[in-house]
Design a protein around this nucleic acid. Sequence first.
DNA 1: CTGAAAGCGCTTACAG
DNA 2: CTGAAAGCGCTTACAG
Lengths: 358, 358
Amino acid sequence: MKQKSKLTGTDDQTGGDFKPRLTINDIARMAEVSKKTVSRVINKSRFVKEETRLRVEAIISEHDYEPDPQARGLAFRRSFLVGMIYDNPNPQYVVNMQQGVLDGLAGTGMELVIRPCDRKSPGYLDDLRGFVERQKLSGVIMPPSVSEDEALVAMLRRVDCPYVRIASIGLDKPDRMVITHDRKGGEQAGKHLAELGHTRIAHISGPASFLSSHERRGGFIDGLASHGLTLAPEFSLQGEYTYASGMTCGRLLLDRVDPPTAIFTGNDEMATGVYNIARELGFSIPGDISVVGFDDSPVAERMWPPLTSVRLPIREMGRVAALTLFHDPLDGDPPAHAFAPHLIQRHSTAPPVKIGPS
Amino acid sequence: MKQKSKLTGTDDQTGGDFKPRLTINDIARMAEVSKKTVSRVINKSRFVKEETRLRVEAIISEHDYEPDPQARGLAFRRSFLVGMIYDNPNPQYVVNMQQGVLDGLAGTGMELVIRPCDRKSPGYLDDLRGFVERQKLSGVIMPPSVSEDEALVAMLRRVDCPYVRIASIGLDKPDRMVITHDRKGGEQAGKHLAELGHTRIAHISGPASFLSSHERRGGFIDGLASHGLTLAPEFSLQGEYTYASGMTCGRLLLDRVDPPTAIFTGNDEMATGVYNIARELGFSIPGDISVVGFDDSPVAERMWPPLTSVRLPIREMGRVAALTLFHDPLDGDPPAHAFAPHLIQRHSTAPPVKIGPS
DNA sequence: CTGAAAGCGCTTACAG
DNA sequence: CTGAAAGCGCTTACAG
């Protein structure tokens, strides 16, 4: 009563061209129904007469009315926000994933709130719990490696927050998972190098704390095995998914009296480290040493020579994760939630020059 | 009345360990004051007796009470969300900027909602207006090039949304700006190459639609001028900040009968293009051609040889942008809002081998 | 199929 | 310095 209706266009001149937003009451009045009926239309309730619904919808779209997400959230006891919690150090990965999630959220009225975090920091779990509870998130999306943190997931379940986990294997119920099958990617890398005729093949894996490290390595071994090859223990090193660890492990391999003729690195980042140490030690790529990366990040095609790498459709994965989050089981099957990586062949791999060192 | 108070710890066993969140009413009751007084404490009103304030604060922190941002937002007619609107194609830039803004927002209770966009898409401005109005954002942070879009800024002013623009020059009132002085970075690049003894120096600029393109180029010319040099028209090409345009422009320069001995590229991305074309055409870096980039993105130190580049403290800029957004003029001067880029010398620059081609 | 009342958890005037 | 009332813009029971 203090504030007159904002809808009487007559006093629009007041305050320049600033139009106050319409509320559900304005729409109700114009449509000559109760606000509750407008609410029913907004929320797509079935209990509205076709005719009424059309009339209300017409007025809503005519006036570009959008319900206030804060008010709705307050009444629903749930916000229209989706959180993305991540600790992935690769900016390209993060940006692609964000974009994919936004793709999947488009048109839903949900907004994306980002939350990078450090799993090793002391208040980690409590901070996240505060965040999720305070914001009453509609859902949370977690790429690796936070997706692999069972304590975090347990916390989300405890506070009743829906979530979707993106990981290389199925860690949860299918409708809470997007599976990336990194193993298959590793397998392709192994087959590719075997088919080129390499036999002295090395691997630099990611850190043990990442599931993907094990999956990629395991798949690689499978791929070699399918061609009767094995990964020799002295040719299997553990890196950290970093450039520096690629350098270090690469040096260990290439400094040997009997170096490998091909290296599969757990990600592209480490492949760039191998490139540099190879150059330093006078190995030509792919002449003396073939290299295969993983991720197919943008640097892959910019390296010299362009890097053969295993690609995962990150953005699409993000999109599907968002769809999965809001998928209603009554609407049938959830969206395809499994992805297969595939090898992008460039110019860092070639048959070994000399067949065997002896 | 329908719902009993949630505070009587006695029936906590109901529903397992799930504790419903306390509300302002619970705190008021425990502190034996009205909810309005609790509200005053939350909002740091001066009109609360010291003793009362301490009592209320004690209870708040004892119970980890956090006011509901949705309810507060509804009453305030403003959400506790900050938007970051951007169209920057560089993932490293975006991630660093996001992180910086989050740094600046830490502890304020504000959350960051991201909004990548395409300035060329048709509904661009209307979409953003809908977003800002619907969410009643507390503020918006804009890095280049959206920060240079006066139509967007006019829209934000019209809907009364606070904002901070990050740009290479002062486009707005100081308290709405974070200035990056790209010009000074260009100048350093020019001086560096001149001091090494180069005279045949080329530049590949960014697209004309980016302010930074002009600033970096202008500063570069200034830097050369301070050593009595000029940028010859045939050595000044316009690229697009992309890898491909770096290749194309690099080829144009190096294919000449009288190629330059040094190239300053408007960003690192284009420098990688120049690297590859140089390799293809048989130029060694820095032996035959020196290269200086801009941004000092992570690839810079991973290239071979590591790229000399001009660094801008992106993350810190994001942090300061957030602080600036919420800076109260009554609290004195706004945080330092001007940044100076500086040159990071690596191994892609050296004195020219032969003094002059003749 | 539709609506009047009460409520979500806060804050803004308005009193005192 | 403190509080009772009304309101922010929606939705949930509850009636009919």
